[in-house]
Design a binder for these strands. Structure first.
Lengths: 126, 126
DNA sequence: CTTGAAGTACGAAGAGCTTCGTTGACATCG
DNA sequence: CGATGTCAACGAAGCTCTTCGTACTTCAAG
């Protein structure tokens, strides 16, 4: 199992793949350009996806001329790994310290607060 | 105001400065080597601190021959900026989504859960 | 005054990330 | 068939980050 921690540019493409489902390079490129304002060369996206394939971050179906790319890790796995990484490097391994910092000095929706409470309830049941 | 987002190596040094207080290069180097197992060249730490000074991450007192370095940002500011960054890049700007991910699939101390609840209470009072 | 220790400054190498141009294969339409 | 458009592959350039060696400065001890 490879390390499921993408770089920034890779994460951006993964987010497109997660939300859209399996895509050709052309589709990813189109979605990327409409997401950002700026232009991006087609070959930039192609190369990035090839690199991601080498790293094991995406699988590809080459049966058609236009290859189709799919994420190999679920979104929860990848974002979880990124959170782990930050917890380790910036919060001495304490996830709760990260949580406190994420909530402090930030307006948070009451509904979301309730949702977090519900999760805490579930956690305490073990 | 410069961007208070350090790289990984820079963060490691900042953490030493935050916990120990203003330090000379020599002191940071010693603390770093005892923190990690591996050896690090003295000039590596020196160069890193110089780069951090150029970026505005640390201030230095050059009145003595051994310069003394101090963080220019508080720990809360820097870790907060890192959290912001991750929230933006991986969670579509939703801090609560990051919180949920940080708590899911992770054994969390009951005391810490209580602490988070207390914070949520305080947040809701506004 | 000379020598050695401790310090700073500087340049450069190597790695990884991001971007893109060029090339060659392949299909499609006239 | 030949021109045109689409695609994958590849290499390379430019950037940042990290690491370290070398050279220069300063100070103190003999």
């Amino acid at each position: 199992m490879t390390d499921p921690r993408p770089t920034d540019a890779e994460l951006q493409l993964l987010r497109i793949l997660w939300s859209t489902g399996p895509c050709t390079v052309r589709e990813v490129h189109r979605r990327l350009e409409e997401l950002r304002e700026t232009d991006v060369a087609y070959t930039t996206v192609l190369k990035l996806l090839q690199v991601m394939h080498d790293k094991g971050l995406v699988a590809r179906d080459t049966s058609e001329r236009s290859h189709v790319y799919t994420p190999t890790f679920a979104e929860e796995q990848v974002t979880g790994a990124l959170v782990d990484d930050l917890v380790r490097k910036a919060f001495d391994g304490s996830a709760s310290r990260l949580v406190m910092r994420a909530l402090a000095d930030r307006p948070t929706d009451p509904d979301e607060i309730a949702e977090i409470r519900a999760l805490l309830d579930r956690l305490e049941e073990r």
